[in-house]
Amino acid sequence: MKRYCLTLDLKNDPHLIAEYEEWHRKVWPEVLESINTSGIEHMEIYRAGTRLFMIMEVSPTFSFEEKAKADADNAKVQQWEELMWKYQERLPGSQPGEKWVLMDRIFEL
């Protein structure tokens, strides 16, 4: 199993952050299905202030490119992603339209 870590910022607004967390207590079934069928076997999101940190453990067949293509063809996932942009901010230095940024591991014990 392979692990990926990604990060993203939220808008610095306590009300919006609370809403974002509420949405993640009731993620739409179509979004959960898209995660499960893509080869993501385990996913967790943590928050410190406005910074989010996601850990994904994926199957050997998982591909970011294939997940992006499948999501682009899924109207419900696109609706979810559009809704989440209300709460999210691009990280400094990220590409236009890029949300979650893949992190580089710099240490392992």
Rank of each mutant, 00 (worst) to 15 (best):
M1H: 04
K2G: 01
R3D: 13
C5T: 11
C5Y: 12
T7I: 00
D9Y: 12
D9F: 05
L10P: 01
N12H: 01
P14V: 07
H15R: 06
E21K: 08
E22M: 06
W23A: 09
H24D: 08
R25F: 03
K26T: 12
V27E: 09
W28T: 03
E33A: 11
S34V: 10
N36Y: 02
T37R: 15
I40H: 04
I40E: 13
M43H: 04
M43N: 02
E44A: 15
G49V: 13
T50M: 04
T50Q: 04
L52I: 05
F53Q: 10
F53I: 09
M54V: 10
T61Y: 07
T61D: 14
F62G: 04
F64M: 05
K67T: 12
A68H: 11
K69N: 08
D71H: 13
A72K: 06
A72S: 10
D73I: 07
L83A: 15
L83D: 12
L83N: 08
M84C: 04
M84R: 01
W85F: 06
K86P: 01
Y87H: 14
L91T: 11
P92W: 10
P92C: 10
G93C: 05
S94C: 05
S94H: 02
V101I: 10
I106F: 08
I106M: 06
E108V: 08
L109F: 09
